[in-house]
Design a binder for these strands. Structure first.
Lengths: 232, 232
DNA sequence: TTGATAGTTCGGCAGGGGCCGAAGGATCAT
DNA sequence: ATGATCCTTCGGCCCCTGCCGAACTATCAA
């Protein structure tokens, strides 16, 4: 019973024009301040504050305080995905203006803010596909990956701190993270973070300054071919 | 401007408990009568009638009159997809009770009513994965597939009417259809239908009588291995 | 024709929720 | 400290909308 109510509650949160306007802006994957969101929604700061609090409580948004600003962002790629599919039903073919501007400016941005510590986008997909193809990981249920013995060896060989990831407390070891744009699962969780760390440490990828974009270096491209047997 | 309102309107339609209950029931892919929907939503027939009319006007539902009954069903697989992704955000792991009953009764049913003319479920995923792996198709944007030259040849060879699919008027050629249960894209659109047609024509798959289920035959299982290099 | 069933439309009630003004913390700049 | 900025909480207004009772149409079964 609460199960059906949960559906309507999430939908109702998205079903208000002001909140929908905020969510649309946040679809660019970035974090925005409360006043910025109020402005684009065309409402006062007080009203916006109430809306934002409700969406945080409903696990649609995540908030982060910084100085006297509060930055809000979408809570997960699942939320982005849900909004996208609603837009699809609503007959919107392109993302709304503000988001599509950011999109063009930064075409490699694939909702990396919430996929912060692991590789997402096309690189993440390529790595995940290659590991799957080689039998190094296997889907386990609909939410996790299983690292096979061969995969364990492989990861150790290229320098991924698998044991460290295993010891990462309560954190999930290897999760399936559904990428917003690619719509296919890639590796997140502690192992995903460890793999990304290896990419950065070995100079295969680098974070762009002041951006959530990850760029694959030339040596990374070569490594993807020689180590993973994948091309991008 | 209407573009953002469209998002909130669709979400608002799904954001009422009574309407959400009806939509959940309709997630079984079947058509239900107005009174049936009123009953499960726990409201009177008058109230339900209003809700249903609004959802039809909003292109969420399609109605079909038959005698003195009116049958309502989800208007498209896009709607089903949107509901599913909202359920995902709401943290529902299993489909709601009523739908899960149909689910258990018919475990191969993967919302085939709206994916009517193309292969969905595990078979659709297996085919799509195999074609991707072989480089026969590539994701194009977030909504379409691109059929490569090699893929064109391959399809012709196994008897898929690719040219016919290309001539299919205004219909999309090869769409990414996100499967409800598998949560991964498979091929829909004209090409998806043509591939499914090949499977039926060559006896690789068969529709079960009076059911939306598609069964893979033994020869289909062999073909999947020999032609597609996939196992299931 | 008469009655029963399925569905819709209309009207009025009542509650929920979105909105803003006012006021109150928090943080930064000077 | 003083003011400015950012954000939040509180209180009250008001509209929107979901709800049902009643009445009406359409189909089916005698």
């Amino acid at each position: 019973m609460t199960t059906i109510n949960a559906l309507s509650e999430v939908a109702a949160l998205m079903g208000d024009p002001a909140r929908a306007a905020m969510l649309s802006l946040l679809m660019d994957g970035r974090a925005h301040t409360a006043s910025e969101l109020a402005l684009t929604a065309g409402i006062t700061a007080q009203t916006a504050s109430g809306h934002l609090a409700r969406m945080v409580a409903g696990n649609l948004l995540a908030a982060r305080a910084q100085g006297r600003n509060r930055f809000y962002r979408l809570a997960s790629s699942e939320v982005a995905h849900a909004i996208e599919s609603l837009m699809n039903v609503a007959g919107m073919r392109a993302p709304p203006a503000s988001a599509s501007a950011a999109w063009r400016r930064d075409p490699d941005l694939r909702f990396c803010r919430t996929c912060y510590d692991h590789l997402a986008g096309q690189v993440g997909i390529a790595v995940t596909d290659a590991l799957t193809r080689a039998g190094h990981i296997e889907p386990e249920g609909t939410r996790d990956w299983k690292l096979t013995d061969g995969g364990d060896l492989f990861c150790q060989r290229i320098g991924v701190d698998v044991d460290g990831a295993r010891r990462a407390g309560s954190r999930h070891f290897a999760r399936q993270c559904l990428d917003w744009s690619e719509r296919r699962p890639h590796i997140s969780g502690a192992l995903g973070a460890a793999i990304a760390d290896t990419f950065f440490r070995r100079g295969w990828a680098e974070r762009l300054r002041r951006s959530r974009t990850v760029r694959l270096t030339d040596s990374g491209r070569r490594a993807l071919g020689s180590q993973f047997g994948a091309t991008l």
